[in-house]
Design a protein around this nucleic acid. Sequence first.
DNA 1: ACCATTAACTAAACGCTGTTCAATTAAATT
DNA 2: AATTTAATTGAACAGCGTTTAGTTAATGGT
Lengths: 205, 205
Amino acid sequence: MVAVMGIAERKVRERESMKAKILNAAFKLFLDHGIENVSIRNIAERIEFSPGTIYLYYRDKDQIFFELYNLAFGRFYEEQQKLQPIQDPYDRLYQGCQQYIRWGLANPKLYDLMFIVEIPMNVIAREECEDIGRRSFDLLRQTVTECIEKGKLRIKDVELGSTMIWNMLHGIVSLIIKRRILVPEETVEGMVSAMLDNFLLLLKR
Amino acid sequence: MVAVMGIAERKVRERESMKAKILNAAFKLFLDHGIENVSIRNIAERIEFSPGTIYLYYRDKDQIFFELYNLAFGRFYEEQQKLQPIQDPYDRLYQGCQQYIRWGLANPKLYDLMFIVEIPMNVIAREECEDIGRRSFDLLRQTVTECIEKGKLRIKDVELGSTMIWNMLHGIVSLIIKRRILVPEETVEGMVSAMLDNFLLLLKR
DNA sequence: ACCATTAACTAAACGCTGTTCAATTAAATT
DNA sequence: AATTTAATTGAACAGCGTTTAGTTAATGGT
C-alpha cells in the first residue's frame, strides 16, 4: 500500500519532469530559431521521442505556446518587480518605463509572444492569460496611482494614465522590433531615450 | 508585323490581368478568412487554375503578400490624404490621429499586415517597402512641422514629435487589435478617445 | 510467479502547407 | 502544315499539426 502510493507519487513527478522536458525543448527552439521553427516534430526530435508522445502531455501546440507565454511574462514581471523598492514614485515610473523598453528590445522574441502575436489560446486560459498580464499592469497602475496622489502628473485618471503610458511604451518597442521605424539603426537608441524623456516630461506637472 | 505588336501588347495585358486576378483572389481570401487562410492552393482554387500556375506570375508567396501590403498602405494613405485640405495644422493633426485609430480598428487585418506582421520580404523591396510607409509618415511630419512652426506644440523637434505621436497611435491600435487591452469591450471606445484627447492636450502648448 | 490490466509510446496515416518540374496542351511563327 | 514558343497542369518533395491502431513496458491482483 505504501509502495503503491510511492509509485503514484513517482509517476506524478515523472509526468511533471516530462512536461518540463518538452517545455524546455520548446523554449530552447523558440529562443534559438524563432517561433516559426517550434514545431511538434522539432520538439519531439530534440527530446528523442516520437511526435505523438507530446500529445500525451499537452493537448495541442497552442497549450505549449501558452506555457511559453507564461514563462516570458514571468521573466518580465520579475524584472519589473525589482524596481518596487524605489521610494519616489516618479523615479520608479521613469525607471520602470526605461526597463520596459530595454527589456523588450533585449528580448524581442519573448516580447513578441507576450504582446504582439495572435494570442495562442483556442479554448481555455483567456482569463488566466489576462491574470498574468494584469499582475504586471498592476505594478504600473500602482506607481501611477502614487504619482497622481503626490500631484506629480498632469493627469488625474489612474486608469487612463497607466494605459496611455503602457501604450506609448508598447508603440515604441513593437515598431522597432517589427522594423517599421524608419530611423537608421544607429540613431534608434538615442531616439528612444529622447522619446521616453520627452513623453514623461510632458506628463510631469 | 503590326499584328505581332498587337499580340505582344495583348499578352502584356493578359499577363497583367492574370496577376490582378491572382491578387484579387488573395485579397478576398485575406479579408474574408484571415491571412492564415491565404494559401497558394486556396488562391488557385478560387481562380480555377492549378497551384503551379501562380508561380508563373509571382515568385513566391511573400511577393503576393508584399502586393497586399502595398494595397493596404494605398488605402490608408488615400484616407489620410483627404485631410490635407484642413488649414489649421493642429486641427489637421487631431483629425489625422483620430482617423488613424479609427481606420486601424476598422481594418484590423490590413493594419496587421502594414505594421504588425513580420515583414514579408525575403529578398527585395526593403526600400520600396519603406517608401510607401515613408510617404504616409511624411504627411504626419509635415503637419507636425507646421504645428511647431506656429508654436502650437510643447515639442521642438519635428522628427521626435512625429515619431512619438505615431508610436502612441500604434500602441493604442495594435494592443486593441491583438486583444491585450484589459479594459472591457464596451468601454474601449471611450478610453481610446480619452487617451487621444489627453495625449494631444499634453502636447499642446 | 503468473496473468490481467493499465499506462506509455511509437509509427503510420490524414489532410494540410509552399514550391519545383517533367509532361502536356495551346498559341504563334515560319 | 510543321515547327517553335508560351502557358498550364498534376504529381512529387519535404514539411506541418493531429489522431489512432498497435506495440511494449510497468503495475496490480491472485
